[in-house]
Simulated scan of single mutants.
Amino acid sequence: MPRRTATMLASLLTLIALLCAGVLIPVPYAGMSPGPSYDVLGKDRETGEPVLQIKGRKTYGAEGHLNMTTVQVTRADHDMNLFEAVHGWLSDDDIVVPYENLYPDDKSAEEVNEENAEEFTLSQESAKVAALRHLKIPVRTRVVVAAVVKGGAAQGKLHAGDVIVKVDGKPVRDPADVGRLVSAHRPGERVEFSVVPAERAKKAEEAEKKAGGAGRTGEEAARTVPVTITTRKAPDGDRAVVGIQAAADHSLPFRIDIKLADVGGPSAGLMFALAVIDRLTPGSMTGGKFIAGTGTIDDNGEVNPIGGIAMKTIGARRAGAEYFLTPADNCAAAAADVPDGLTLVKVRNLDDAVRAVEDISAGRTSELPSCTKR
C-alpha cells in the first residue's frame, strides 16, 4: 500500500475513533438552556385550567401578560458526551455547568425534584401573603413547629404543626423569636413552651373558617399546653437548642390556588404575587402589555435573586415579552447580554414591581429603573 494512502487511512481511522469517543465517552457536565415561559394570568397548557384561581373574593379580568420564566436543564440520568459539551460551550443560548452543580452527590435525582417542588409550593405561599399584605388585606400569621430533629431534645415533646404561642411566658410573633428566646438559655437549662397541639389547632382553624373568621379564636388561644424541654448544646457552637425548626404559618381569608404542571423552584414568586394583585383590583394592571420577570419573594414582599438569569431573559423575549422585571442583585448579570427588544426593569421589592407595571401600562417608560452592567 502506498505510504500516502496508508497515511490517509490512518488519519481517517483516527478521526473515526475520535468521533466515536466524542459520542460514547460521557463527561461530568450538565446543560442549561432557556425554558418555557408561562403567563400566570392565563391557563396551564397541559390542563387547560387557569393558573391562578381565587374563590371567596370578588375578582376582575386581566389583559396582557405577566409571564414567569424557567430554565431547562438536562435530566439527572442523561450522560452528556463531549460533542454536546462543546456545542453548549460554543452556543450563545446554552450553558454547560459541572454536573454536581445541578445534582449534588449527596442527593438523588428524586430528592432534588422533591426540593424543587417544595420550593415551588413555598414560593406560592409567600407570593399570596405578600400580595394580600400589599393590598392591606389581613392575613393571620402564627408560628408553628415545622420540623423536629430526630434524636433532638424536643423529639416526642413537640410535633410538626404544633402552634407555638409563648416561650418562657413571652409571646412569639415570628419564627426568629423562638431561636432568640431558646438561645438566651445555657445548654442544660429548661425552657418552657406554651403550644396548641397540631390536631387541636387544625380543628380550631376549621371551625374558624366555617364561622367566617380570620383571627385567632379565643378557644385556640386559651387551650395551650405547657411543654418543658431541657436544652442541649448546638452541634456547631455553644448556644442552647431544643432541636426544632420554627416557621410562619399563614391563614388566608379566602382561597387562592396556583396550579402549574411540571414547574419547580422558588423563582416565580414575584410574578405570582403580581398576578394575585391584578386579579383582586379593578382594571388591567398591565394595560395589555407583555411583561415577564423572575425573582423569589418573601412574606414581606422583598424580591431576591435567582439563578440562570441570562437563560430567563432569552426565554422571555422568545415568548414575546417587551419588559422584564429583574431582581436588583441580578441586574448586572442580566444587563451583560440583553436580548434585542427587551427592556430590563430593576426591582427590589413588590412595591417596586407594582409601580413598574403601572408605569409600563401608562406609557411612563422613561421613569423605569433600569439595569446596568455595573
Rank of each mutant, 00 (worst) to 15 (best):
A10Y: 05
S11G: 10
S11L: 14
T14N: 04
T14V: 11
I16W: 14
I16M: 14
I16A: 15
A17K: 04
G22Q: 04
G22S: 00
P28Q: 05
S33L: 11
S37E: 04
V40Q: 03
D44P: 11
E46H: 02
K58F: 03
G61N: 10
G64Y: 09
H65P: 00
H65W: 12
M68K: 04
T69Q: 08
V71G: 00
D79C: 04
L82D: 02
L82R: 09
A85H: 05
D92T: 11
D94N: 15
Y99H: 08
L102R: 02
Y103R: 02
P104K: 11
K107A: 02
A109Q: 00
E110P: 01
E110G: 08
N116Y: 12
F120D: 04
Q124Y: 10
Q124D: 10
V129I: 14
A131C: 02
L135Y: 13
R140P: 10
T141I: 13
T141A: 15
V148G: 06
G151K: 08
Q155M: 07
H159W: 04
A160F: 02
V165W: 01
K166R: 15
D168V: 05
A176K: 15
L181Y: 14
H185C: 11
R186L: 05
R186M: 01
G188D: 00
F193S: 02
A198P: 09
R200P: 07
A201Y: 10
A204N: 13
A207G: 15
K210P: 10
A211R: 03
R216S: 14
E220W: 09
A222K: 09
T228L: 02
I229S: 03
I229H: 00
D238W: 01
G243R: 12
L252S: 01
R255K: 13
I256T: 13
A261W: 03
V263A: 03
V263T: 00
G264S: 09
G264I: 01
P266H: 07
A268T: 08
L270R: 05
F272C: 03
A273P: 15
V276Y: 11
I277C: 06
R279I: 10
G283R: 04
S284D: 13
G287L: 00
G288A: 01
I291C: 13
G293Q: 03
G293M: 00
T294V: 03
G295Y: 05
V303F: 00
V303M: 09
G308V: 07
G308Y: 02
M311N: 12
K312W: 12
R318M: 06
A319V: 01
E322A: 13
P327C: 07
A332F: 04
V345P: 07
A353M: 08
R355H: 15
D359I: 01
D359K: 10
A362P: 01
R364K: 15
T365H: 04
S366E: 11
C371R: 12
R374G: 12
